[in-house]
Design a protein around this nucleic acid. Structure first.
Length: 898
RNA sequence: GCGGAUGUGGUGGAAUGGCAGACACGCAAGACUUAGGAUCUUGUGCUUAAUCGCGUGGGGGUUCAAGUCCCCCCUUCCGCACCA
């Protein structure tokens, strides 16, 4: 073969790896392990796009490298194959989702295999396989059978839940209710987002900021109540937060998870309520505040429109106004509420509350800037020290009382405004007017931190409140009114009871149905499967229905990394011995779009499994890496509207609308069908081969960066591979021959430098610079008149993780048998990497004025002498007086002159 | 508004505080060729005849020396968004 021909080489070596089972992972627990995980894809009908191979190639490079370094590597792939597109397709065409899914998986598998990725295909998992979702259902049962013990801070089996005597006195029904109230998975009426267009419940995260449904784009979204499965993830909020500290994850992702969990500490305070300004009542309003220290500045209270005590609060005179306000608020979506954020609205309830620290009567208002879903749904308003309260008070002429003099960071004019109640100060300072003989509390003169602590102590002593922590994270809505998902192992009995299918009867297999449309009223398509649906207990004759909701797509992806460890295991979801060896995942690579949800849900399940003693680690993913998105060029015209890339053409480096003189601007955008800027990996593989595609994707830039695809870049990689081929195989030689003589010193040095650079860059996932080093190495080899066996060997080994097909071919050409997979990584001799001469820079006043090449480790004095002798340096010093000379050995001499 | 990224030649991008632009793409000139959108060689930040000079989003600062460290501001992208 005279030339590099990917189409010939690549299938040959893929067959070789396949037939030899080269990448099969063995159970050799004596070797150090490396578990390298890719986020498994949803196999869409569109097939692979160029974004997939980016992460997969990066992990493949790491894995091939780690194997060469002697690690036992687990590197699996599978399919997150439940999901809406297959179900939509079924509704449109009547094709069963299992058929579509199987076909799509087949396509994805073929495409991925063609890239020469070193997966152990015997461990492939598929979330839609009953053998897999049997265990998803089993884990659901575990969650149902678990409660969170706040004392131990961990999940425990439900049968260990202590039943308080007053509950036990109520009989078995009361006990059952009590127990159900503690389970991590529970069934309840939940207010959910409902899309009238799709007849489907949308998760909070599917409702976009503009109030439209992420999936269908319409704004026909409203809230309604439905029976739903939910998970009490907030109970694990603290653990999920603390666990982040131990993880080697990008700081940005950790921060996003922290924000999502949204911990804030403060206090709960009880206010007694008076229905009128004179008559008192037994009613109390509990608020959550992060600033209990500002109690003296609380001049009014606000409850959410949905607050359960609102009816009891309203005075007869205000009843009509409040009713009207509440109705309007209910009609508003969250969208309207937030969009109207600029203009606050609210109505006085007619009730007053008593400020516990000073006995002042303060009015209670209702306003929708207070959310029922957070804290207690009621706040104490401190307009002088909270911007939202300030806005509201200004609008409705409520009193603004400053109780804290701003600290030195506050400009003088603002300080005066704050003190006179004309501006708002939320930072630190010293309390004023924060003392009352009635309550005996005084925090005057203290700072914010001291004030908070003192107030909480006082509240607790008086029994008026307590320190409290609140989280933004809410219960996780865990059911979907869809067909194509895991069925719940649940029966709802006609008498109102709920039971779970016994573990030995799992899986509950998804029944075959013909009509995939959701039913009126929000029932899942599964309610069409009547023979499956209705159940009669053979022993008691009790009649019931199976749960018709299915699990969300997160369910299968919450634990797939565990199934890979022992995919055939029949006795358990994971083999315990194997689990202890392989966990945790050493490197998890995927897109940042899963930064919060998938990674948070997975961590939650994992911690529950850990608490139950079912897995050995507290956290599943030790190191996380987010690859950047690959974008593509697109065009926009003068008005800023987007122009598909096939309607644009380039003339002299400028872009025009095809056939016209209308100028276009080149922009970078997500690949999309409408912009016609989607790049198809199949085409690239056909034209240039998988090795070129792999190299290009890695060479584009840093793995974590968002970067635009430039098809021309592929040509460069193809050329590099051709040069590589020539550097080893030579030009047109039947059987290449290699010199076994000692290579020249400079080539030896470059060889060892390359080992160091490439190894370190792979470890750091700086794959673009590793490839750049390989190019430098290759270019240098081509310059050498001889091909030295020792040098060629190292080069091919370094190339192997990046372009494995060509590397195998060249390895064979070097006379090696048995492939590269088992060959140990080359070891660099650091003493051979050191350059013996180097270039010293001469600077005058920090500007480069000359160079000299000298042997290394020359003395400072000698270097200075050379510098002073340099003609150009002399010229730039001129008549100036030398004030200082800085000599950095082996680097530079800088002469500072007046 | 809050939080997180980001900004370097015509383009993608390199640079432990020490020669900015490695390595590529593109472009230009030349070689080889029946031909080239193949291959090879050379050149290529701006400015200049050449030196000088100017150059890492903008403005300050620290330093003998700043893309890199500090302060202020701006761009673009991505999250979250009345979270008390």
């Amino acid at each position: 073969m005279a030339r590099y021909d990917a189409s010939e080489i690549e299938p040959k070596w893929q067959r070789f790896w396949d037939e030899g089972g080269v990448f099969r992972t063995t159970a050799d627990h004596t070797r150090p392990k490396f578990y390298c995980l890719d986020m498994f894809p949803y196999p869409s009908g569109a097939g692979l796009h160029v974004g997939h191979p980016e992460g997969y190639t990066a992990t493949d490079i790491i894995c091939r490298y780690k194997r060469a370094k002697g690690f036992n590597v687990l590197h699996p792939m599978g399919w997150d194959a439940f999901g809406l597109p297959a179900e939509h397709y079924a509704i449109q065409t009547g094709t069963h989702p299992s058929i579509t899914t199987a076909k799509n998986c087949e396509t994805f598998r073929r495409q991925i295999r063609r890239l020469g990725l070193s997966y152990d295909w015997e461990r492939e998992v598929n979330t839609t396989d009953p053998k897999y979702y049997r265990w998803t259902q089993w884990i659901f049962i575990r969650l149902y059978e678990t409660w969170f013990d706040p004392v131990l801070g961990k999940g425990r089996p439900i049968n260990e839940l202590p039943i308080p005597p007053e509950v036990a006195a109520g009989g078995p029904a009361a006990e059952r209710t009590y127990r159900d109230g503690k389970r991590l998975a529970y069934y309840a009426d939940a207010q959910v987002w409902w899309c009238d267009k799709c007849s489907i419940v949308c998760a909070n995260e599917e409702v976009l900021a503009d109030g439209s449904h992420e999936k269908c784009g319409t704004k026909e979204i409203r809230r309604r109540n439905l029976k739903q499965w939910l998970m009490r993830i907030p109970l694990y909020a603290e653990r999920l937060l603390q666990g982040l500290e131990t993880l080697d994850w990008p700081e940005g992702i950790k921060e996003m998870q922290r924000n999502w969990i949204g911990r804030s500490s403060g206090a709960e305070v009880d206010f007694t309520v008076a229905i009128t300004s004179t008559v008192s009542s037994s009613l109390t309003l509990r608020v959550f505040t992060t600033r209990p220290d500002t109690l003296f500045g609380a001049t009014y209270m606000v409850v959410a429109p949905e607050h359960p005590s609102l009816n009891a609060l309203v005075s007869p005179e205000q009843k009509a106004a409040v009713e009207m306000y509440r109705k309007n608020a209910a009609l508003k979506s969250d969208l309207d509420r937030t969009e109207l954020a600029k203009e606050k609205t609210g109505v006085f309830t007619g009730a007053y509350a008593v400020n516990p620290v000073n006995g002042n009567r303060i009015p209670v208002w209702v306003a929708d800037y207070v959310l029922m879903g957070y804290g207690t749904g009621a706040i104490m308003a401190v307009p002088a020290h909270d911007t939202r309260d300030f806005e509201f008070a200004s609008k409705f002429n409520l009193p603004i009382v400053c109780i804290m003099e701003p600290d030195a960071t506050c400009p003088q004019d603002l300080r005066e405004m704050v003190i006179s109640g004309k501006a708002c100060w939320t930072e630190d300072g010293r309390y004023i007017s924060s003392s009352s003989p009635i309550s005996g509390l005084s925090i005057n003169g203290l700072s914010k931190e001291e004030g908070v602590a003192a107030t909480i102590t006082w509240l607790e002593k008086q029994g008026l409140g307590k320190a409290s922590v609140n989280y933004k994270i809410r219960d996780w809505l865990f059911s979907r009114q869809r067909y194509w998902g895991e069925p719940f192992p649940v029966i709802h009995w006609n008498d109102g009871g709920v039971s779970l299918i016994p573990e030995n009867e799992l899986p509950v297999v998804l029944p075959d149905i013909v009509d995939f449309r959701p039913r009126e009223g929000g029932e899942s398509p599964l309610s069409n499967a009547e023979t499956w649906l209705n159940i009669t207990d053979p022993a008691t004759g009790r009649k019931g229905r199976r749960e018709t909701n299915t699990m969300p797509q997160w369910a299968g992806s919450c634990w797939y990394y565990l199934r890979y460890i022992s995919p055939q295991c029949d006795a358990a979801f994971v083999d315990p011995g194997e689990e202890r060896y392989w966990m945790p995942v050493d490197l998890y690579v995927g897109g940042a779009e899963h930064a919060v949800l998938h990674l948070l849900y997975s961590r939650f399940w994992h911690k529950v499994l850990y608490d139950l003693g079912l897995v050995s680690t507290d956290e599943p993913f030790k190191k996380l890496f987010n690859q950047g998105m690959i974008l593509s060029y697109a065009y926009e015209d003068a008005s800023g509207s987007l122009v598909p890339s096939d309607e644009a053409e380039e003339r002299n480096g400028k872009f025009f609308k095809k056939g016209t003189d209308e100028g276009l601007r080149q922009i970078v955008a997500k690949m999309s069908k409408s912009l016609k800027n989607v790049v198809n990996p199949d085409e690239i593989v056909r034209k240039h081969g998988a090795d070129s595609l792999r190299l290009y994707e890695m060479f584009m830039g840093p793995l974590e960066a968002t970067k635009p695809w430039q098809t021309q870049g592929i040509d460069g990689m193809y050329r590099f591979l051709q040069r590589t081929f020539r550097a080893i195989a030579g030009d047109d030689e039947k059987t290449p021959t290699f010199s076994i003589l000692a290579p020249p010193k400079s080539l030896i040095r470059l060889t060892h430098q390359s080992i160091v650079k490439v190894s370190r860059d792979i470890e750091d996932l700086c794959l673009n610079t590793a490839i750049s080093q390989l190019m430098i190495f290759c270019n240098e080899m081509l310059k050498s008149p001889e091909r030295y066996l020792a040098v060629c060997e190292v080069f091919v080994q370094l190339l192997h993780p990046f372009a494995p097909h060509l590397a195998e071919e060249l390895w064979e050409m070097l006379g090696k048998k048995g492939g590269l997979a088992g060959v140990p990584w080359p070891v660099a001799d650091l003493s051979l990497t050191i350059e013996d001469t180097l270039e010293i820079v001469f600077q005058v006043n920090g500007k480069v004025r000359g160079h000299i090449t000298v042997e290394r480790d020359l003395s400072k004095e000698k270097l200075e002498e050379y510098a002073r002798a340099d003609e150009k340096v002399k010229a730039f010093i001129g008549t100036g007086q030398i004030r200082k000379v800085i000599v950095v050995p082996n680097k530079l001499v800088n002469i500072v002159v007046n």
